[in-house]
């Protein structure tokens, strides 16, 4: 594929983080002597997030959003493409500088903190690794800031509730004062009442610390609540990007429509969303080289699977589809 997905966006400010045409391919061997197959986990993904805004990234399991975020925080090197943060090439930076630019927050607060270390120790650890001073005091301040009682300084993660653990993980990610925070499903493992607390905290921290955020989730309602813009991914590619309310109200790509349509709202009286039956999700190995959604798409024509879909740009929105007029009709 030669045409990268270059989003023609009218970004009001310089992007704080810019992913350019990221690609990552895994070679998967089936059985010991099987022929290795190429799995395009991320296939030419570009994202820009202006300073101080939040980009929501949605998609279902296997769409490559976690792989993409691993590359964005520098845990994984892409096969090609680049990540720049505040104008710096992330992969060219020394580790000590990289960690002050971008930090991740993970989904499972149970697994995100080493169970044998104390909370204060965990929160202060990034500073200790990078030669900070006054570590204990700063750790206490950060705990206070994320609403974690400082009496838990000497507690072990196992003694905290799920919400408290997620607060500790957030404190740890923020103690180096990074510019960008990548939240990978940060509330998926939490109960709804706790989810609200953590979302409120993230919104508050974003405002107070002028954070730029990428918020990855499969929960569209949560993404809509916290994001300025939303990008939808399907099998390694971005299929649509739009301002959050617009994406929810008028999704344009058939897959975005399917996702929005399948989201259940807590209001009775809506019928169960109609879904195409007997359509198993496409095998990522069998995904066509053209539009990858074509095998599941109600509007697809045979030609859709042959070439990559062209970008359709509208003010503040872009999506990639061969047959936009058929979809809207």
């Amino acid at each position: 594929m030669t045409a990268p997905q270059t989003a023609q966006m009218t970004a009001p400010r310089q992007p704080m983080i810019h992913l350019r045409d990221l690609r990552k391919t895994y070679s998967v061997r089936q059985g010991m002597f099987g022929k290795p197959k190429e799995l395009h986990a991320v296939d030419g993904l570009s994202l820009e997030v202006p300073e101080g805004t939040t980009l929501g990234l949605v998609g279902e399991s296997g769409c490559g959003k976690s792989t993409a975020m691993s590359m964005a925080v520098g845990l994984l090197r892409p096969d090609s493409g680049s990540v720049s943060i505040g104008g710096h090439d992330l992969y060219a930076l020394p580790v000590a500088e990289r960690v002050r630019l971008i930090q991740p927050v993970f989904q499972n607060p149970r697994a995100a903190l080493n169970p044998v270390r104390r909370i204060g120790d965990l929160v202060g650890q990034p500073l200790r690794l990078h030669g900070g001073r006054d570590i204990a005091r700063k750790a206490r301040e950060m705990m206070d800031r994320v609403g974690l009682p400082t009496r838990l300084f000497d507690a072990y993660p196992g003694e905290l509730s799920g919400g408290q653990r997620q607060r500790a993980a957030i404190a740890r990610a923020l103690i180096l004062e990074p510019k960008v925070l990548v939240c990978d499903e940060p509330t998926s493992a939490l109960d709804v009442s706790v989810q609200a607390q953590v979302l409120n905290l993230l919104l508050e921290l974003k405002r107070d610390m002028q954070l730029t955020m990428i918020f990855v989730s499969h929960n569209l309602a949560v993404v809509e609540h916290v994001s300025d813009r939303v990008a939808v991914m399907y099998l390694g590619r971005k299929v649509e990007e739009a301002p959050a309310p617009a994406l929810f109200k008028t999704p344009r790509h058939p897959y975005s429509r399917m996702l929005v349509g399948a989201t259940l709202v807590p209001e009775p009286g809506h019928p169960l969303p109609a879904q195409p039956k007997g359509q198993p999700p496409a095998d990522p190995f069998l995904a066509p080289m053209g539009c990858r959604f074509a095998p599941r798409c109600a509007f697809a024509q045979p030609s859709c699977a042959e070439r990559p879909a062209p970008a359709i740009t509208e003010p503040a929105r872009s999506f990639w589809c061969h047959r936009p007029e058929a979809v809207t009709a």
């Binding site: 691993s70 925080v73 520098g74 845990l75 580790v95 000590a96 990289r98 960690v99 930090q103 991740p104 993970f106 989904q107 499972n108 697994a111 995100a112 903190l113 080493n114 650890q125 990034p126 690794l129 990078h130 993980a169 740890r172 990610a173 180096l176």
Partner: peptide
């Protein structure tokens, strides 16, 4: 594969 290992890599350990 626990997330705390990724977290440690992310803080440059």
């Amino acid at each position: 594969h626990q997330e705390f290992i990724s977290g440690l890599q992310a803080i440059g350990a």
